[in-house]
């Protein structure tokens, strides 16, 4: 087994009385492509948001690259309301904000594209380089970091070149066709130099041809940038094609895990997707 990169332990996310994710645990090892699937409303994106620090979980812990980044336990109003498991196991609170988590090497894309719409493609990528900048606001304003600034711009040009976005470099991001906007969002995430890339439904709204291209694109960037990829997706062709392992969520609970072949033949998964005949 290779080295562990992301370790999610007993994560429960409860909104008021609704348990969106219930006792979810998973592991991602370096170099893998792992997929998270499940019917609509299963809690996939919520799980994603917990891992990236957007939501603090109600209970549970997340470690990234050997460092605990998120840990929480039910407190305050939630103490009485809490309907999940493993109450009392965790006693600490660690809540890293999304920007700190990105700095550690975890970059994400969004289900509904969130580019910096009125800025150019190049600026979009350049902004993602800001987090590794060493200059402070004064040295940056008075241009005392010219070498660093030049290095940032060179890296961006290189990245655009690799990802085939050089021709649209100076276009406004929102003017790009949909497929390219998706690519740009991935490119922007890559510019932060992540170890783990999280893709939230990268193929949403794409036709079969675009989906095939995207599949190749994900493979290509994974090899080129030596990444680990965690993807949420509905397109089963894409998921079965690229993932090494799959986790299946339904109503916030993990119902199956395994290789694509195992998942395809798993009765619980088939039931969750197609529904179960109820015997009278």
């Amino acid at each position: 087994m290779s080295e562990n990169l992301l370790h999610v332990e007993n994560v429960t996310m409860q909104f008021g009385g609704v348990v969106a994710v219930n006792n979810f645990s998973m592991d991602i090892n370096k170099g893998e492509i792992v997929a998270l699937i499940g019917p609509n409303g299963a809690g996939k994106t919520t799980a994603f948001n917990v891992i990236t620090g957007v939501y603090a979980p109600t209970n549970g812990s997340v470690s990234f690259d050997g460092e605990e980044i998120i840990c929480n336990f039910p407190k305050g109003k939630m103490k009485k309301l809490y309907a999940g498991e493993n109450n009392g196991v965790y006693t600490r609170t660690i809540e890293k904000t999304p920007d700190k988590i990105t700095k550690l090497g975890m970059a994400r894309t969004f289900q509904n594209i969130r580019l910096f719409k009125n800025l150019t493609v190049f600026e979009n990528i350049l902004i993602a380089k800001h987090l590794r900048e060493k200059a402070n606001v004064f040295t940056s304003t008075f241009r005392l970091n010219l070498a660093e600034e030049k290095k940032m711009k060179d890296e961006c040009n290189e990245l655009l070149d690799i990802l085939g976005l050089t021709d649209v470099k100076n276009d406004i991001a929102s003017s790009l066709p949909y497929g390219q906007q998706r690519h740009l969002e991935i490119a922007r995430a890559l510019a932060t130099r992540p170890k783990l890339l999280l893709l939230d439904e990268p193929a949403a709204g794409m036709n079969p041809q675009e989906t095939i291209e995207l599949t190749q694109f994900i493979r290509q960037v994974k090899d080129k940038f030596d990444l680990t990829v965690f993807v949420i997706e509905h397109h089963m062709d894409l998921v079965m094609d690229i993932s090494d392992r799959i986790y299946v969520l339904d109503f916030g609970k993990m119902i199956a895990t395994g290789t694509p072949d195992e998942i395809q033949n798993n009765q619980a998964v088939i039931d969750a997707y197609l529904g179960v005949q109820e015997d009278e």
Partner: peptide
């Protein structure tokens, strides 16, 4: 400067800016 670009990113989309490592 780089900070100015980060400011513009916050104007465009706070959530995306934060996900790109810009401390809001």
């Amino acid at each position: 400067s780089s900070y100015g670009r980060a400011f513009k990113a916050i104007r465009e989309d706070e959530i995306a800016a934060e996900a790109m490592g810009i401390g809001l």
